[in-house]
């Protein structure tokens, strides 16, 4: 590649005289000198002439037993595909040729376009299987994002806005007395999503309830995706996983409810319908 290609001065001068631009003249002159070199070395040039093509085709048919030549022409079964002119390979012939070049490894030579298709793509290169990235793209039932998905999302957005607006219109966020570090309200409660943990404080040492359980909980939650090796997503195949998750979710909900509604002054047990609510959002 490194070697600079000489330009064919004669061709260059002629093209310049014809009024071609210098860039084009130089490119064509280079090509001409390469061509000359190839002819001198006795190499073939360019595409085959039609006659040469016909000869190659005849030779191929000779080799593969001849009979295939008529396959495309008559035959009730083959009428579904387009008639193929005798000067071209019929699909069957092409299939035979591709599978021959693949070493007849029994997979029907299906690289790219199926060999039996009536499309006339050329096989450009054979790539070893290891060099092909395996992409399993099954045909899927898909719809356009616009309008189908975006409209659904927009409706969800409007509905959510309406819910938040209406709630905010009728319900005021709490704002109690000014913070006073010397006056502990009774009970003192964390925000609702931590009240399950605060409830656990009643049963465990604070290190267990406040650090170990939430910490380990989050790690286990994250790891679950790697621990669960069951490939199926169908509910009937993953009864254990679903049961375990449901168990934890229900436990969590029960503790949050207990901490939120059933704990009063001193964080002692109360019945909300008897003693009232000790809960603020």
């Amino acid at each position: 590649m490194s070697e600079e290609v000489q330009i064919d001065q004669e061709v260059y001068d002629r093209l310049i005289a014809e009024g071609k631009s210098e860039r084009i003249a130089r490119a064509k002159a280079k090509a001409a000198s390469v061509r000359k070199g190839k002819v001198a070395a006795g190499q073939e040039l360019g595409p085959k002439s039609p006659e040469e093509n016909q000869q190659a085709l005849a030779a191929f048919r000779e080799r593969s037993g001849g009979g295939a030549a008529t396959a495309g022409a008559g035959g009730g079964a083959a009428t579904a595909t387009k008639e193929v002119p005798a000067s071209r390979l019929s699909p069957e012939e092409r299939a035979a040729r591709v599978s021959a070049s693949l070493g007849g490894n029994g997979n029907g030579g299906s690289i790219g376009v199926p060999a039996s298709s009536a499309h006339t793509h050329r096989l450009l290169a054979l790539v070893p299987p290891a060099g092909i990235q395996q992409v399993q793209s099954k045909q899927q039932d898909k719809v356009y994002t616009w309008p189908h998905l975006l409209i659904v999302e927009f409706v969800a957005l409007l509905a959510m806005t309406a819910v938040v607006l209406v709630t905010s219109f009728f319900l005021d966020a709490p704002l109690g007395a000014l913070a006073n570090p010397n006056l502990t309200p009774n009970p003192s409660k964390a925000p609702w999503y931590f009240l399950g943990l605060q409830e656990l404080l009643r049963y465990f040492h604070p290190m267990v309830a406040g650090v170990t359980i939430p910490g380990v909980g989050l790690i286990v939650l994250g790891a679950a995706a790697y621990v669960d090796k069951n490939p199926s997503a169908k509910p009937e195949n993953r009864k254990f996983a679903n049961m375990a998750m449901t168990f934890f979710l229900v436990m969590w909900t029960v503790f949050v409810f207990a901490g939120s509604f059933f704990r009063g002054p001193g964080f002692n047990w109360v019945w909300p319908w008897v003693d009232g609510l000790f809960f603020e959002l």
Partner: peptide, 15 residues
């Protein structure tokens, strides 16, 4: 910065 706020946070950060 009302009573609800600082005491909820006190409970949380104590843990």
């Amino acid at each position: 910065w009302d009573q609800l706020a600082i005491w909820a946070v006190t409970v949380g950060t104590e843990m």
